[in-house]
């Protein structure tokens, strides 16, 4: 696999603020790559560094083998779908999509034809004459996608593109983006703070925190084998167990990560004081403490639900307790 985007020790500092700090990463051609992290973790700045809206204060960025620092955004073979879509309000949908072709000097007829074809691809073939203000959020999102794709970029950058959509539309767009990526075969780089989105869509995920990448791996790696308490906590709100507690359980001094769904009520095991209970629909989340350590578990539908204030016995399989080295 050829490298599409490579960061070598890339930093973007604003005075004392280290928005991106010594990031190394290598995204392969044709990969669906997610950058996951809380707000302010550096994921969006990393995307903007690829697009060329920001310039690194240190390090090197290569885009398809070419050193990118001195290449302005308008010459880079990447296109962006913006979080707020950034559609041009004075142009209709067709002219929005054809914008990239227009500035490249493609003839009027040809670019209208390409724009209509691309709109067809995102199921908006009949909307060419409308203004962006006449479209729903989901439709605008598709126009933004079509506008970025019409230029046939080598990599598509998506900055929280589904953030403004409601849950149902978001799930539908996740599917569509994934199949679109497979059929086009181009690199997708996707920024999100939604861990389930990252896990369900991406081939690989980079988890960002405080301007650095704390872990890169497949969704399974990230979910089941977090290397740091932050990853365990942020991805799937795992129970992060302190080293002293883990030492009592296993004899090894390490942070432990235990998925809420791996903890269950049982006959024998650890005594737990139930603190609160919340009904989630598919399951019930129970917060409790075991020997002073706060933990949550997910109790599936049908089981007997303990009440706040109760004492219950819980256990988990040894395999489900994942250990992370203390740093």
């Amino acid at each position: 696999m050829n490298s599409a985007i490579r960061f070598s020790g890339v930093s973007r500092h604003y005075g004392a603020v280290k928005a991106v700090d010594d990031v190394n990463l290598d995204i392969a051609e044709g990969e669906f790559f997610a950058m996951l992290g809380p707000s302010g973790s550096g994921k969006t700045t990393s995307l903007r560094l690829i697009a060329g809206f920001e310039r690194p204060t240190a390090g090197e960025i290569h885009i398809y083998g070419e050193e990118a620092q001195s290449i302005p955004p308008y010459k880079r073979p990447v296109n962006t779908v913006f979080q707020d879509y950034a559609l041009f309000p004075h142009l209709n949908v067709r002219d929005n999509v054809a914008y990239g072709l227009m500035v490249a000097g493609v003839g009027k007829k040809q670019r209208a034809k390409s724009a209509d074809e691309t709109l067809e691809m995102v199921a908006l073939g009949a909307y060419g004459d409308r203004k962006p203000s006449e479209l729903s959020g989901g439709q605008r999102q598709r126009v933004a996608l079509a506008r970025a794709l019409v230029n046939k970029p080598k990599a598509l950058l998506l900055d929280e593109p589904l953030g403004a959509l409601d849950l149902k539309l978001r799930e539908q767009m996740q599917e569509e983006l994934k199949s679109l990526q497979r059929s086009l075969g181009i690199t997708f780089i996707f920024v999100t703070h939604d861990q389930s989105e990252a896990l369900s869509m991406a081939d690989r995920v980079a988890v960002f925190n405080n301007g650095r990448i704390v872990q890169i791996g497949t969704p399974e790696d990230i979910y089941y084998r977090p290397q740091q308490p932050f990853v365990a906590d942020f991805v799937g709100s795992s129970n992060v167990l302190p080293p002293e507690f883990v030492a009592k359980l296993t004899g090894k001094t390490a942070h432990g990560s235990l998925r809420p769904e791996a903890v269950h009520l049982s006959e024998t095991g650890h005594a737990a004081q139930i603190k609160s209970v919340s009904f989630l629909g598919t399951a019930t989340r129970v917060s409790m403490t075991i020997q002073g350590v706060a933990m949550t578990m997910l109790v599936p539908k049908g089981a007997v639900i303990p009440k706040a204030g109760d004492t219950a016995t819980v256990s988990w399989a040894d395999d489900d307790l994942h250990l992370m080295a203390v740093q």
């Binding site: 697009a51 060329g52 809206f53 302005p72 955004p73 308008y74 010459k75 990447v78 296109n79 962006t80 913006f82 979080q83 707020d84 950034a86 559609l87 041009f88 309000p89 004075h90 914008y99 990239g100 227009m102 500035v103 490249a104 506008r147 970025a148 230029n151």
Partner: peptide, 27 residues
């Protein structure tokens, strides 16, 4: 005029004078 509008124009391949002519000035 949102800043992303100008970035979007550049991102789509418009040189600064094209961004001025086709996005900034009309807006």
């Amino acid at each position: 005029v949102p800043h992303t509008m100008l970035e979007a124009s550049g991102d789509l391949g418009a040189r600064p004078y094209q961004t001025f002519l086709h996005v900034l000035l009309p807006l």
